[in-house]
């Protein structure tokens, strides 16, 4: 009984301590924005490794998600004779939900895990302590560029995902299933609002990028410096960031699109 209580207390203390460490870590990482302004090439290098290298998987998945939406939407809508609404359906679901969420999930799997493994291994091979010995702040030098690169690239990736998805839906709907092209675009344009739908989708993806970057970088920085510890941290990154993206999506959707 006492043992169980002890375990509960220890778990609570540990998780609180971890939350506190991650908050300080985030504040320290964000304060590195001045160093990035001094050394923009650090940011560009990270934009390449988190953004450009994720572009391919985002483009291909966006195309297929859009095509599947077009196909499934067509089958359901044609029962009601409302095939012309296919454009609205595809664009609304992509711009509001699927674009930001799926691209953030793919980003967590593709770039988040890589970031955790990279930083975890840097810690395990004592590169971070080495930097500290040379009076270089490892958080500002290593973490900040990656943090800002993620925050910048996730919205861009989400925008690319949604656009490619709309084009995919157009390929299937207009090209394969011969929905009227004019109705496809005009209904889409009259029902999708720039501020309500597109800007909100972008705000969502900025939040997701921030969250995924924070979790991935902190898990790497906080990993137990052994090969097992790094592998566990990588797993935790993917699981936790996917979970928080989905949970945050629900909260943000309720705030943005609800009439509460």
């Amino acid at each position: 009984m006492i043992y169980l209580l002890q375990r509960l207390g220890r778990t609570t203390c540990n998780s609180l301590a971890k939350t506190g460490r991650s908050a300080f870590f985030l504040a320290h990482g964000l304060s590195g924005v001045t160093d990035i302004a001094l050394r923009p090439y650090l940011l560009i290098k990270q934009l390449y490794s988190v953004g450009v290298l994720t572009l391919l998987i985002i483009t291909i998945s966006g195309l297929f998600v859009g095509m599947v939406l077009g196909l499934q939407g067509y089958y359901t809508l044609s029962d009601f004779g409302a095939e012309e609404s296919l454009g609205v359906m595809v664009a609304a679901s992509l711009v509001r939900e699927l674009g930001p969420v799926v691209s953030a999930l793919l980003f967590a799997g593709r770039a988040g895990s890589a970031l955790t493994a990279e930083i975890g291994l840097m810690k395990a091979t004592e590169q971070l302590s080495g930097m500290e010995m040379m009076a270089v702040d490892p958080i500002k030098r290593i973490i900040s560029p990656r943090l800002f690169a993620c925050i910048l690239s996730v919205p861009l990736l989400a925008a690319i995902f949604s656009s490619i998805g709309v084009i995919g839906g157009h390929l299937v709907g207009v090209g394969m299933l011969s929905v009227d092209e004019g109705a496809f675009w005009s209904q889409m344009q009259s029902n999708i609002d720039f501020y309500d739908d597109i800007v909100n989708g972008i705000i969502k993806s900025v939040v997701f990028g921030f969250m995924v970057a924070w979790i991935a970088l902190f898990e790497g920085y906080d990993a137990v410096p052994t090969s097992e510890g790094v592998s566990r941290a990588t797993t935790r990154t993917v699981v936790n960031s996917s979970f928080s993206v989905l949970a945050l999506d629900f909260i943000l959707t309720a705030l943005m699109f609800g009439d509460i």
């Binding site: 953004g51 949604s162 656009s163 344009q189």
Partner: peptide
């Protein structure tokens, strides 16, 4: 690397413009 990053950012901004003008009612 600079070129590819530039291309990536240009693609992203291009996608935003595509959504603003072609998908939404902003142009109309």
């Amino acid at each position: 690397q600079d070129t590819l990053v530039g291309l990536f950012v240009a693609c992203g901004i291009g996608a935003l413009f595509f959504m603003a003008l072609q998908v939404s009612n902003l142009g109309a």
